[in-house]
Write a protein that binds this DNA or RNA. Structure first.
Lengths: 212, 212, 212, 212
DNA sequence: CATGAATGAGGGTTCATTCAT
DNA sequence: TATGAATGAACCCTCATTCAT
């Protein structure tokens, strides 16, 4: 606590560290207890700081949530680009890559539950919705691009706007994740693949004019 | 409100009325603000009663929720049986009926949001989960039977256990409903149909051995 | 309980029965949970009646308590007169009778606890104190007479006014009863006898002028 | 309030002051209205703070009670050691010291009432009993040692285990204190001495085999 | 920047009591 | 007489937030 050998920590570094600790603690609690149930007191206690430290770093519980959401979507984007990148496992065909994506969607059920809670919150708080939508729509677009790319690669016409399909799969994944603990089908990943395969089976090959 | 031949209201009627008022107020608030955000104080004030009146009729906020849930699922079951009954609109083929089901799934987005909040709550409260699962699993089974019946009628082998498929569609509908207010695809019903059609397109006809 | 051979029950009888049931239920709950902790709702539920029935028979919780107290002191008086009556067990000497009295004092710890709670209540509620004192002082006088009689029989001069001595023994018995559950000496009856014997040992024989 | 050399109060002092104010208010109300009847609202209002301030300093109403009890027993122990110490008033004989002890026991009737309410509470709440017994048994042992010391000094064999005798005197003092407001003998101190003297009169001198 | 005691509002729940039936 | 739904006040407790230190 005293006698620094070299510097110790810049004031800025120290503050950044506090921030990080608080974010990590908040993430742990949001995921395990939900956003509404986790109190700021809980978060600061879990992180080992005072409540005041929280307000020195964030303006509200919502602000933390948005920060975490941003981090998480960045992480998901990284996972997605891994799946997308064809060079990674050269011979891998499109369907195998889809499998991997489905697994991605299915994993991290806790985050899915949190994401759902977030959307509910956004639906009811206009103030929060604004900030939330910004980060969410960026993610949606990325997913849409991925889906479009897939159909393209398979020479198929998507049966609906790719972005909507992406939204559908996220909705499916989230809905299944939420229902998991409550008697839902356990191998939710498999179920996602069933839906995905159905979509491909139904799609028309490119070239033939999609009659709709 | 009915048959005021002599007195205004018998005691039983009056009590039933209070109950109804409270349930209606709770429903309004749960749907518009969410279960967690609606306080018992809010509910009783909205209904025009004292807080004590609430506890004369219900044992807890969860109890009201379960009651409302029961009512709602009964209502959904009625809608479902309407769709299911082939005799109703004689010439209607299976796909048209599916369309009507998708519309059913898609309507009532507010209730879907509530259903999701409920599942989240159940996932985190073991006590509530027990009562909740009872009413939920009954509903799930009904839906599963409906899906099984559909595939049967079309002479197709379901690509997954019908009950799981049903769960999938509910998850999809709920997920879409939750995302609706937050930048999701607006014609969610259409999207559900896309997924449904895909499932049918991918299914093998009965008789041919399903090779997997 | 049903199928009355002659009449059903006079209205008066029926009311008396309700009263009795309520009193019995109240006694059970007061003794097991204490006066403060037993709610009127609890009492009526335990007795199998509605809350309204309570107010048809008693004006308040305190009124029930006073009624029960009266009954109890009547009962104690009967026990006391048994002990007092020399004819009952002819050869029995005074000390043996004292032993029996001590046992009487010591038994019924639950009632002792209730009695203490009552006194506390009386000390803090002037309204209750008035009614309470009436029934209590009558009891105290009876006890005093008993003590006086005892010393007389043994030809001893009481070292303090008999009524005060009686109050002392009640206080001792009550104090011990209350402390019993909390690490107090278990054979409290023995301890009471020790004090009693001491009193006798210290008392001057009648005739010698008590020098104070 | 002390040493205002620079600032008015350091943070710690200010907090300690709040704690003290709350404790004092609680003591006042517990003593005058009883533990059960004094609400936390009452206490904080009496002290001039918000309810939250209470919970910043104590975990529950019971916790305050235990704290006060601890303080009180410390105080009693100090009084006791004053009485015990023979050097204090050199020529004072054992009986005179007993007189002083009896006076000690008798004083502070309000606290005695509180102590009794506490025991009742402990008898009915296992959770509270645990914490309560710890502080109580320590006190009991101290008193027992004091009694043992007295008999020793007088070369007398105690007619019962000293700790039980101590418990008996506490029970007597408490019982009398509780009954004081309700028609009990007013000079309760005198009565205690009567019992004490009796005990000594009955005791056998050391050396003679105690024949039972 | 970080502290955490204190605030004030609100949470769910229980209570003795009333009164139309 | 007995009912029990409804009242209104009070209960203990937790919350997000502030602010002097």
């Amino acid at each position: 606590m005293s006698a620094p050998t070299r510097k110790r920590l810049t004031r800025e570094e120290s503050q950044a560290q506090t921030r990080e600790h608080l974010l990590a603690a908040a993430k742990r609690l949001f995921v395990s207890q939900g956003f509404g149930a986790a109190s700021i007191r809980d978060i600061t206690t879990e992180a080992g700081y005072s409540q005041g430290a929280f307000y020195s770093n964030f303006s509200s519980k919502e602000a933390v949530l948005l920060e975490l959401l941003g981090q998480h979507m960045e992480e998901e984007a990284r996972q997605l680009s891994n799946v997308l990148a064809p060079h990674e496992t050269p011979g891998e065909n499109a369907l195998a890559r889809l499998d991997r994506w489905a697994a991605t969607l299915n994993s991290d059920a806790d985050w899915s539950m949190l994401a759902v809670e977030l959307q509910l919150h956004a639906n009811r708080s206009a103030a929060f919705a604004e900030s939330y939508l910004a980060v969410r729509s960026r993610h949606q677009k990325r997913l849409g691009a991925f889906v479009a790319h897939l159909f393209e690669e398979l020479n198929l016409v998507p049966p609906a706007p790719p972005e909507d399909l992406a939204a559908g799969f996220m909705a499916l994944a989230h809905g299944l994740a939420v229902g998991r603990g409550a008697g839902g089908p356990d191998p939710a990943g498999k179920l996602i693949m069933v839906f995905l395969r159905g979509l491909l089976a139904d799609a028309q090959p490119v070239g033939r004019r999609a009659g709709k």
